[in-house]
Nucleic acid binder design. Sequence first.
DNA 1: AAGTGGTCTAGACCACGGC
DNA 2: CCGTGGTCTAGACCACTTG
Lengths: 245, 245
Amino acid sequence: MSDWKAGSDARLPLYQRLREEIMDRIASGEWPPGEPIPTESELTRRYNIAVGTVRRAIDTLVNEGLLERSQGRGTFVRRPDFDASFFRFFRQVNAEGEASVPDSRILSASLQTPPPVASKALGLAHDASCICLERLRTLEDGSLLTEKIWLPAARFSGLLKVPLEEFDNLLYPFYEARFGQRIGSARETLTIASADAITSDTLGIALNDPVVVIERTALGYDQTPLEYRCSMGAAATFRYQIEIS
Amino acid sequence: MSDWKAGSDARLPLYQRLREEIMDRIASGEWPPGEPIPTESELTRRYNIAVGTVRRAIDTLVNEGLLERSQGRGTFVRRPDFDASFFRFFRQVNAEGEASVPDSRILSASLQTPPPVASKALGLAHDASCICLERLRTLEDGSLLTEKIWLPAARFSGLLKVPLEEFDNLLYPFYEARFGQRIGSARETLTIASADAITSDTLGIALNDPVVVIERTALGYDQTPLEYRCSMGAAATFRYQIEIS
DNA sequence: AAGTGGTCTAGACCACGGC
DNA sequence: CCGTGGTCTAGACCACTTG
C-alpha cells in the first residue's frame, strides 16, 4: 500500500499527488481510453488514503475532461470530444438534422519536407521529412474543406503503402487501429485569409473570397505531437460562438 | 435555521439546493460582485447542513466561474472576465507588452428603432425604440473596430443627456456607476463578412476585404439582456485559439 | 444480491490574511 | 491572535447497473 511513483512530491496535497498518478497511468497507456480505471475503494486500498481524497482527485480530472463517471458502472478514461472543434461551426443547415459523418476523400499521400510551421508543431528538425496527406471533406451543408495533414514518418511507418481507399472517414480511429497512435487532445487556431487561385477553385468560391484557416496540432495522451493539419473552408458559412462569464 | 426559499425542490441534493440559493442571492443583487458571501460556517448554521456540503456547493460555483475563493479572506462574487472575449484575439504585436486599455470614442448617441437582431437579442418588441451608440475603438496594434451598441431605453434613461466626452473607455463600469446596470455574462458570435464602402473606409482597409463580425449580447446577473452590440474589425489581424480534449 | 459511484455528516488539523 | 478557506479522514446511507 501507499505505492507512490518516484516523482511524486510528498509536499503536495494527497489528492493532487493521486491526480498526477492517474494522469501518468493514462499517458503511459496503462489505462487506455474507453476503459474503466480502478474503483474508488481499490484506489483507497492501493494508496492507503480515504475515499473522500480519492473522490476529490477524480473530481478534478472529471472537471478537466480526462475522466467520465458513470454511476453503478465505474469511472472511465474519456476520449477527446471533437464536437468542440471549429469544424463544428461551419453552418449546419441540413434539413433532416441527421448527424451524418461528413464525407472525406484522401487525394494523395507522399513523403515531403514540411513547411516550418508543420515541423515546429510536430517538434521535428526543420529538414526532417514527413508524411503529407491531402484531403477533401464535404460538410453536411455541401460546403467543402481542403486539408493538408502532416504526420511524423517514424510513428506512421507503412502508411504510404496503404491504398487511398482504405483510409477511414475519421482519421483518428484509423491512426489508432493501424498504427497504435492515440490522439488525446488538440489545439486549434483560427485565422482568416483570402482565397488564392487554387483554393478558390477547389472550394468553388471566387478568387479573394474570405476563407477560414484552421490549423490543428493534435497530441497523444503523453502530449507528444502526432499530427499537424491545416484546413481551409469558405468563410461565408462559418459561425462561431463563445460564452463569457 | 434551514430557511430554504420557497422554490427549493426538497428532492434535490442539498448541495444543489444551496447552489441555487446562492445563485439567487447573486442574481437578486443581495450579494453584489466583488463582495464576499457569508463564510462557510455561517452558511452551515443558516441552513443547518455540514461544512462538506457547503464546500461542495461553493466548489461547483467556483468551477462555473461565479465565485472566487481567497484563502484566509473569504469567498467572493466574481465579475465576468472579458479576457475571454474575441476582442482579445486581434493580434497584439505591441512591442512593450503594456496592457494599455484600448482607446475608444463614442461618435454618436441617439434614439432609434433597432434592427430585428438587436430587438430580439434584447427581448423587446420589434417596434420598440432603443438607445444606439456608435463607437470607434483603437486596439493596441493600431487596428480599428467599429461598433454599434443597442441599449434598452427603459434601463438607461438619461443616457442621451450624457455628453459624449463623459463616456468611459470601459462601458460596463460606466453602466454600473451611472445606471446601476451590472453585466454578469455575455455571449459572443463570430462571423466573417466582406467590407462594404462605409466599413472599409472607417477601418482603413480595401473594399471587400474580409472583416470579422462580432455580435455580443450581454446579460445582467439575473439573465436580463442589457446590451446588444455588433463590432467589426479587419480580419487580417485576427487569430483565435481553442483547446480540444 | 453485489458492487459501483453519489450524497451527506462530523470532526480534525493546516495555511494564510489581517488585526 | 482569530477567522477564513484548504486538506484529510471515517463512516453512513442512497441510487444505479449488472448478473
